[in-house]
Computed example of a mutant assay.
Amino acid sequence: MNTGELSQEQFREVFPTVRAAEVLAPDAAGVAALLDSVRHSAGDGLAAARAELELPLLRPSAPPSRTRFNEAALGLCEVADEHRVRMARRLPPGIPAQRGAPEEADAAGEEALEPAPEA
Rank of each mutant, 00 (worst) to 15 (best):
N2M: 01
E5V: 05
Q8S: 04
R12Y: 00
R12V: 05
V14M: 11
T17C: 07
A20D: 09
E22A: 03
V23R: 00
L24Y: 00
A25S: 13
A28H: 08
G30V: 02
A33T: 13
A33F: 04
L34R: 08
H40R: 11
H40E: 07
S41P: 10
A42H: 08
A42R: 09
A42Q: 11
G43V: 05
G45P: 01
A48E: 15
A48Y: 02
R50Y: 05
R50F: 05
E52D: 09
P56A: 09
P56M: 05
L58D: 10
S61L: 12
A62Y: 06
A62T: 13
P64V: 07
P64D: 13
S65D: 05
S65L: 15
R66Y: 07
T67P: 00
R68G: 03
N70D: 12
A72R: 13
A72F: 11
G75F: 01
E78T: 10
V79C: 04
A80W: 03
D81K: 10
D81R: 14
E82W: 04
R84S: 09
R84V: 14
V85F: 07
V85S: 10
R86H: 07
M87H: 06
M87S: 12
M87F: 02
A88P: 03
A88V: 02
R89N: 14
L91T: 02
P92A: 14
P92V: 04
P93I: 00
I95L: 12
A97Y: 12
Q98L: 10
Q98V: 13
G100F: 08
G100Y: 04
G100A: 06
A101N: 14
D106W: 10
A107Y: 04
A107V: 12
G109V: 06
E110S: 03
E110Y: 09
E111I: 13
E111V: 14
A112G: 10
A116I: 06
E118R: 15
